[in-house]
């Protein structure tokens, strides 16, 4: 009797806790994704298995088909627990300096991600300031900025690697430049919008003080543009990682998540591909979260300590 009550209390506690936080919806989504993934694995892997059963003349039952499709080597779609095992093998069981460690490869990719992100942000802000302050640049530069983003990155990435390789620049720099190429665009668009967003009244106020363009920039336009900058930085961060991975594909790079994706597809090791993809997704989520964290701190300061987001 007492035990029943204890269990009932615990269940109600867990229930109320789950309902209070975001845990329940998040768990539901994760479970749904896993369920679809397992079903998909059966659907995609079973034709191959049925062929194999037929060739070997094995009598098969559905329970066996399901079990085998979830534990197949070189599956078309490896099941979640296979990917989890691959992640454990390549992250936890390996020394992080080993070439088999996904931590090592993620680190390689992140180094060019960061450099590209910094370069792209700097370029994006510089272009935005030019566009806002110089009428000629406003007319001439923006169409090029937009045109640059209509070229598929997969088409231009190998050319950048090859051209820079021909003049002796290899390794980190070309990869970062591809990241930069992707991530300067949202920064430019966001900062242009931000620098143009002060209320006309505040611009009039600065004019009554006879403030110089530089003073208006520092005292008014820049602080007003910062929230727009951060919204762009979130997009830029994710794009920068995409750029770094894409940059590792054409060169036959020795290290990095892109090279793991490539070797995974060469050798039909789908587990490896999925593990690298999940690593990339987690890294991206973490980076965007970090930008969001900085965003909250900075924007709160800019609102005079008021909670804004």
């Amino acid at each position: 009797m007492a035990l029943n009550q204890v269990i009932a209390t615990m269940i109600s506690l867990i229930k109320s806790h789950l309902l209070k936080t975001d845990a329940l919806p998040v768990m539901t989504v994760i479970l749904a994704v896993l369920a679809i993934w397992y079903l998909g694995a059966v659907h995609l892997n079973s034709p191959q298995l049925q062929d194999r059963y037929k060739k070997q003349g094995i009598e098969w039952r559905y329970s066996q088909l399901v079990y085998d499709s979830w534990n197949m080597k070189r599956a078309v779609l490896p099941s979640p627990h296979q990917v989890a095992m691959e992640l454990k093998k390549t992250i936890i069981d390996q020394n992080i300096t080993s070439k088999r460690s996904l931590v090592y490869h993620t680190g390689v990719t992140l180094s060019s991600t960061f450099l590209g992100f910094i370069l792209g942000t700097a370029l994006g802000i510089a272009l935005a300031v030019g566009i806002v302050y110089v009428t000629t640049l406003d007319r001439s530069l923006m169409p090029w900025v937009i045109a640059s983003q209509t070229i598929p990155i997969l088409a231009i990435a190998p050319m950048i690697i090859v051209v820079l390789g021909a003049i002796g620049i290899t390794g980190l720099i070309p990869k970062s430049l591809i990241s930069m190429y992707l991530c300067f665009f949202p920064v430019t668009v966001g900062v242009v919008k931000g620098l143009r967003s002060p209320q006309p009244m505040l611009l009039d106020l600065m004019q009554t003080y006879n403030a110089s363009k530089l003073q208006v920039f520092w005292c008014l336009r820049l602080p007003v543009a910062v929230p727009y900058l951060f919204a762009s930085l979130k997009v830029a961060m994710a794009l920068s990682l995409v750029g770094a991975i894409v940059a590792e594909l054409p060169a036959g790079a020795q290290a990095g998540l892109g090279s793991r994706l490539l070797s995974g597809s060469y050798y039909g090791q789908t587990n490896l591909i999925w593990a690298a993809l999940i690593c990339a997704a987690l890294a991206s989520a973490l980076l965007v979260y970090l930008v969001g964290f900085c965003q909250r701190q900075v924007c709160r300061r800019l609102a005079g300590g008021q909670e804004v987001i």
């Binding site: 009244m201 009039d204 009554t208 006879n210 800019l302 005079g304 008021q306």
Partner: peptide, 16 residues
């Protein structure tokens, strides 16, 4: 700067 101007709204900078 020989005049002061007060606008319809306070026009204060929120970060100051």
């Amino acid at each position: 700067q020989s005049y002061g101007y007060v606008f319809q709204a306070p026009a204060l900078l929120p970060w100051r």
